[in-house]
């Protein structure tokens, strides 16, 4: 009886993997590219969690604002012309920068209005969650009002052709850009947090804010910088996401929920955990199309979240709060 069930499951999986067949590698590449976007957003959750022990509910709107800012910039830059190779590189760099800066600005604004006044008052945790939800809701609906309610396709500042074959999967320009930008930013942040003076103060606050402030670390400034850094990566991720799927005021919601899942999966508060969690979730989600109807992909991610929270709430790498890197 038990054997039959097990072999039943087994044949279910093998037969579905068979249907994956030649789709496997393309799905893997696509999953990795999406995974990098999740990782970049997850970093924002994880860093804020590190210093405040809170989930920043407004992070989805940081992502969205990065998407919109870079969308308008790209639209203005590209215009109707065909950019040359060098122009393409420049435009992508500018897109990442402006997306990141917009994200950072919004993140800082949220910290300033929705978090800092409460921190002054030593408000209970519930209050932070509620004001962050308010901020998210405000920004989200303001964007809908100012920019409209439809999905705008972003015309990329480059020709998105397949660059090369990986196994039997064509790897497109956009995938390569996502991978390169993602890797560079995550690597840079990792260095910044583990090596610089700034990083040391972030880690000190994450470990023990009270002691850190006695040691002369400026808590307010450190928290603001944490929001800025997390916001920058989140905004840049919004740009990469927008290139692929277009921008719309609701664009932040689902990716942010997934990035949060990724952060928990890797171990919230842990930078490398966010990277691993993001990639893993991206791949799992991408491959799951072999097993479930595409409409239910989000259900898979949600299932992953609930499963991780139940089985190992500290995530794969554990909550290494103080050692944020």
């Amino acid at each position: 009886m038990k054997g039959a069930v097990v072999s039943g499951f087994f044949s279910y999986f093998t037969s579905h993997f068979a249907t994956l067949g030649h789709e496997f590698w393309p799905l893997l590449v696509g999953g990795l590219a999406t995974g990098f976007i999740y990782s970049m957003v997850a970093i924002g959750y994880t860093m804020v969690y590190g210093v405040l022990r809170l989930i920043n509910f407004a992070h989805s709107e940081v992502f969205m604002s990065g998407g919109f800012a870079s969308f308008f910039l790209t639209k203005w830059l590209v215009g109707s012309g065909n950019p040359s190779a060098w122009q393409s590189v420049l435009y992508v760099v500018l897109g990442v920068l402006v997306g990141g800066l917009a994200g950072a600005a919004i993140a800082a604004l949220v910290e300033r209005t929705a978090y800092r006044p409460l921190r002054r008052r030593k408000a209970p945790k519930l209050a932070y969650l509620i004001s962050a939800i308010g901020a998210s809701y405000f920004l989200f609906n303001l964007a809908a009002k100012e920019f409209g309610r439809i999905n705008f396709a972003m015309s990329p500042p480059f020709v998105n052709h397949a660059l090369f074959q990986f196994a039997n999967a064509p790897v497109e320009m956009l995938d390569v850009i996502t991978l390169v930008v993602g890797l560079l930013m995550l690597f840079g942040l990792d260095r910044l947090v583990s090596k610089s003076k700034l990083g040391r103060s972030i880690r000190a606050v994450a470990q023990d804010a009270e002691t850190a402030s006695l040691m002369g670390v400026n808590i307010d400034r450190t928290i603001a910088v944490t929001f800025l850094l997390g916001g920058f990566l989140g905004g840049a991720a919004g740009y990469l996401f927008g290139l692929k799927f277009g921008v719309v005021y609701t664009m932040g919601f689902t990716p942010a929920l997934k990035a949060f899942t990724a952060a928990v999966l890797g171990g919230i508060g842990n930078l490398r955990g966010a990277l691993i969690g993001g990639l893993l979730l991206g791949v799992v989600e991408s491959l799951s199309v072999a097993f479930v109807n595409g409409a239910y992909i989000d259900v898979v991610s949600f299932g992953v979240l609930v499963l991780v929270l139940l089985v190992r709430p500290t995530g794969i790498l554990g909550e290494s709060l103080g050692r944020a890197a």
């Binding site: 901020a135 809701y137 009002k145």
Partner: peptide, 11 residues
């Protein structure tokens, strides 16, 4: 939008 702003203001 107003409701979102109201949440922050209340907090």
């Amino acid at each position: 939008i107003y409701l979102g702003a109201l949440l922050i203001a209340m907090m």
